[in-house]
């Protein structure tokens, strides 16, 4: 099996700048490696044969998750899914992200995989992308030209394509400040435990004192090339108390924007049918988690 293995140069820099330089030097066939949950599997299957691997695991800043003074949370790209799932800094609406992390694959993958690696791979059915769009996250990227930040919505271009230019790496995910009254919920439907989503729904909502929705963001996963945010549905739900009628109407607006495919997990038609149910389930679960606090 291993007879035609090509030789891979392995590097383990200590800083982001070094990592970027090492990637640039080696050109197109170099790959950054974080947890390796996906890349190592692709290499084992000989689908990808990098000439150089640049491990990001020794870069201290990437392994930190910090609560910033302005209320935003900076999740380093090397944070494992398990760490994010149990992250105490993620409160209120930010829990849409920890909720997504807790539902990724299985414990070995959650112990190994990282947020930076997962979003760079950008599987259309992955759990983080819709949750980051719903959380209005920003992605921090480092490259030969320095660092830049872009909204999650502009990062996922669809069908495994991201806004990363050659030689660039994700360094952090930044979640904006949220109010204490906000909530976040991630709902996923998969055929078997640990699978990628057949479809998923991520929502973040804030309410006023009388339980009326004052802000809402909603994104769907597994139903197109990337997470799909439906602003018309968000607008339709703001000002309501998430009554059944309002949710049914909004779900129709959501379904109209989806672009699913038939694949081994389910047909496109089936996906369009389950998304409204997932949306309703997300709202039901939100109300349940909220009520004891009232």
């Amino acid at each position: 099996m291993l007879t035609s293995m090509t030789k891979t140069d392995f590097q383990k820099p200590k800083t982001v700048e070094e990592a970027v330089t090492l990637l640039k030097e080696a050109g197109d066939d170099a790959r950054p490696i974080s947890g390796g949950a996906t890349l190592v599997a692709l290499m084992n299957a000989r689908l990808v044969q990098p000439s150089r691997l640049v491990s990001l695991s020794a870069i201290d800043e990437l392994t930190q998750c910090t609560y910033q003074s302005d209320g935003s949370v900076r999740i380093g790209a090397m944070r494992r899914h398990r760490q994010t799932a149990f992250e105490s800094n993620l409160k209120a609406a930010h829990q849409v992200v920890s909720g997504a992390a807790s539902q990724i694959a299985n414990p070995p993958v959650r112990n190994m995989g990282t947020i930076g690696g997962s979003i760079s791979f950008a599987d259309p059915a992955a759990d983080y992308p819709p949750s980051l769009v719903a959380a209005n996250a920003e992605i921090e990227i480092a490259g030969p030209e320095g660092r830049r930040r872009i909204p999650a919505e502009e990062f996922f271009l669809g069908w495994y394509e991201t806004a990363l230019e050659p030689g660039e790496i994700v360094t952090a995910v930044i979640l904006p400040p949220v109010s204490e009254s906000s909530v976040g919920q991630y709902e996923k439907l998969c055929r078997i435990a640990g699978d990628f989503a057949l479809a998923s729904v991520a929502v973040t909502i804030d309410f006023n004192a009388s339980n009326t929705v004052t802000s809402l963001r909603l994104a769907v996963g597994g139903c197109g090339g990337g997470p799909i945010r439906v602003e018309a549905a968000e607008q339709a739900l703001i000002g309501t108390k998430l009554e059944l009628d309002a949710v049914v109407d909004a779900a129709e607006l959501v379904v109209a924007e989806l672009d699913p495919i038939d694949d081994v997990r389910g047909s496109a038609e089936y996906r369009l049918k389950v998304v409204p149910r997932l949306l309703q389930r997300a709202f039901n679960n939100l109300v349940e988690t909220r009520e004891p606090a009232q």
Partner: peptide, 14 residues
């Protein structure tokens, strides 16, 4: 070919 036909069609269309 490992990517299903549904996805390859989307990529081809792009």
């Amino acid at each position: 070919g490992r990517y299903g036909a549904g996805m390859m069609k989307k990529i081809a269309t792009r």
